[in-house]
Design a binder for these strands. Structure first.
Length: 486
RNA sequence: GGCCCCAUCGUCUAACGGUUAGGACAACGGGUUUUCAAUCCGUUAACGGGAGUUCAACUCUCCCUGGGGCUGCCA
């Protein structure tokens, strides 16, 4: 199937849009089809510089690379590929004009000269009378001569769709099922703006037809404009694509997910350290379920398991807690080597010595099961690269039954036990053996020995275990840190 | 206001007429453990309401209620 993702370059890629793109991409992959990226830059006023680039880069970063349409070349320049271009709507203005003219000629659309002010007054009046705000067709009733004269006089105008009032529009949506709309409740939508740009409605119909798109999946907010699109397809003599309207993603208060109440830019989540795997896994599960109890899905597993039939109708709240859980799951699934290469630059930036550290892999693997985000890594490994500040208050821990006055004695005992381990034998096994025999002979509890040791070595309330840290710190440094506190 | 859509634990969801209404996140409790994580086990927690169809409704129909979306020369 040919599917598409048609963002408007008015802002950074939105998480809701990413989910829609993901589903479109999955359908394309599953059907060995094509995933098209088209840029809907028809609103000159709202366009944001850099948005297109952000959208493409983000899609690529999470692994949803478009097969056709707009992409970035090797130099990072925005360009296009594919047989149905151009893929920027602003480069297709002639096309929209052509089809608008066709509709005009067929009496299926009409020019409208109404000013924004008049329309505004009209709507206010309609509202006052508790009527649905809809265009009153003033310009539809103009004589052909008047229309001709005003256009020739260069008067600004738009082209409106002449919706058949008596028609009942029925459609079977892939997600929502049978939908019915009455023609008289559908407004005479503007198709072509006075600046010559099309509105979404015309552009969508023309492009998805010309680009031979099989499946249009888009947010539920488009459901109420569906009849306009179906009428357009009919007027133009084309077969409409299959539509799959996706349930909305919601704020915790169940309104449509918005910038005001949530972080919505995919870029923000990636910058915070969320893994693409976690983000995509999370988004896939918002509104879709596999029908099994599997929760963790790689992109390939999603291709395998995905189907539109299992997409939900109701909106889904964007639940950060579940995202965080998935993030943790994916963090732990990363192969150790890859984990190292991901965190190393971050750690080296703060501690240059880590760059040449032969033990980096082992040290890094200590934190992999406790880390949630990559940027936490430098801090979690800091004590390997700088002398920690160790306070007596940290070592003296009531919960571990360690009294302040006993600290020097305890540290001395540890010092002595570890000094007994030879340089050559310094391994986690040897350290464990030495300390366990100390625990046995001293009659102290494990925590009374291991907490002070760990605290003295790391200076932290929590960290990986004492045995592990001592092993990877080396004998010399371990002894030195013990001595420094005592 | 009008049109359209939706409705199972707090959240994401399973159930396609017959189940002790299942799972996951969160919360809570516990095991493991030198700490924090991780991990394991357990607990609390839902069919919005009312009619109807049926031997039997979470599942089908209707009404109500509630929520949402749209109602722009935005997408």
């Amino acid at each position: 199937m040919r599917t598409r993702f048609p963002p408007s370059p008015t802002g950074l890629l939105h998480v809701g849009a990413l989910r829609t793109a993901l589903f479109a991409w999955l359908v394309a992959r599953k059907t060995k089809g094509t995933f098209i990226l088209r840029i809907e830059d028809t609103d000159q006023a709202r366009e944001m510089a850099g948005a297109t680039e952000n959208i493409i880069r983000t899609l690529v970063a999470v692994g949803l690379k478009p097969d056709e349409g707009v992409h970035l070349d090797q130099n990072g320049e925005i360009c296009e590929r594919g047989p149905f271009g151009p893929y920027h709507q602003s480069d297709r203005l002639d096309l929209y004009r052509q089809y608008a003219d066709q509709l005009l000629a067929g009496g299926q659309a009409y020019p409208c000269f109404c000013t924004a002010e008049r329309l505004d007054l009209m709507r206010k009046d309609q509202e006052k009378r508790r009527q649905a705000p809809m265009y009153d067709r003033t310009c539809c009733n103009l004589s052909p001569e008047e229309v001709k004269n005003r256009i020739e006089a260069g008067e600004k105008h738009v082209i409106r769709l002449k919706v058949p009032r008596e028609e009942i529009i029925v459609y079977d949506d892939l997600i929502y099922g049978s939908l019915t709309f009455k023609g008289h409740t559908v407004d005479d939508q503007v198709l072509l703006k006075s600046d010559g740009f099309p509105t979404y409605h015309l552009a969508h119909v023309v492009d998805d037809h010309l680009m031979k798109v099989d499946l249009v999946n888009r947010g539920e907010e488009w459901l109420s404009s569906l009849p306009k699109h179906l009428i357009l397809f009919k007027f133009l003599g084309w077969t409409p694509p299959q539509y799959a309207h996706m349930p909305l993603i919601l704020n915790p208060d169940r309104t449509k997910l918005s910038k005001r109440k949530n972080s919505v830019a995919v870029t923000d989540y990636l910058a915070k350290g969320y893994l693409p795997e976690a983000l995509l896994n999370f988004l896939a599960l918002l509104g879709w379920n596999p029908g099994t109890e599997q929760e963790l899905f790689s992109l390939n597993e999603l291709i395998e398991a995905f189907s539109l039939e299992r997409v939900q109708k109701a909106g889904a709240v964007f639940d950060l807690q579940k995202l965080d859980w998935l993030q943790g799951q994916w963090m732990r699934k990363i192969p150790p080597q890859e984990f190292v290469s991901r965190i190393k630059p971050l750690v080296v930036e703060k501690f240059p010595a880590a760059g040449t550290d032969p033990k980096f892999l082992e040290r890094a693997s200590l934190i992999q099961e406790r880390i949630t985000f990559f940027p936490e890594a430098p801090d979690m490994l800091s004590y390997f690269y700088e002398i920690p500040n160790v306070s007596l208050d940290l070592i003296a821990n009531p919960k571990q039954k360690i009294a302040r006055e006993d600290v020097p004695k305890i540290l001395a005992m540890i010092h002595e036990a570890l000094s007994g381990v030879s340089d050559a034998d310094w391994s986690q096994t040897a350290i464990t053996t030495a300390l366990e025999s100390l625990i046995a002979s001293s009659g102290m509890k494990k925590g009374q020995i291991l907490w002070p040791l760990r605290a003295a070595l790391t200076g932290r309330e929590y960290s990986p275990g004492a045995y592990e840290v001592a092993t990877l710190l080396g004998k010399e440094e371990t002894i030195r840190r013990l001595a420094a506190v005592a």
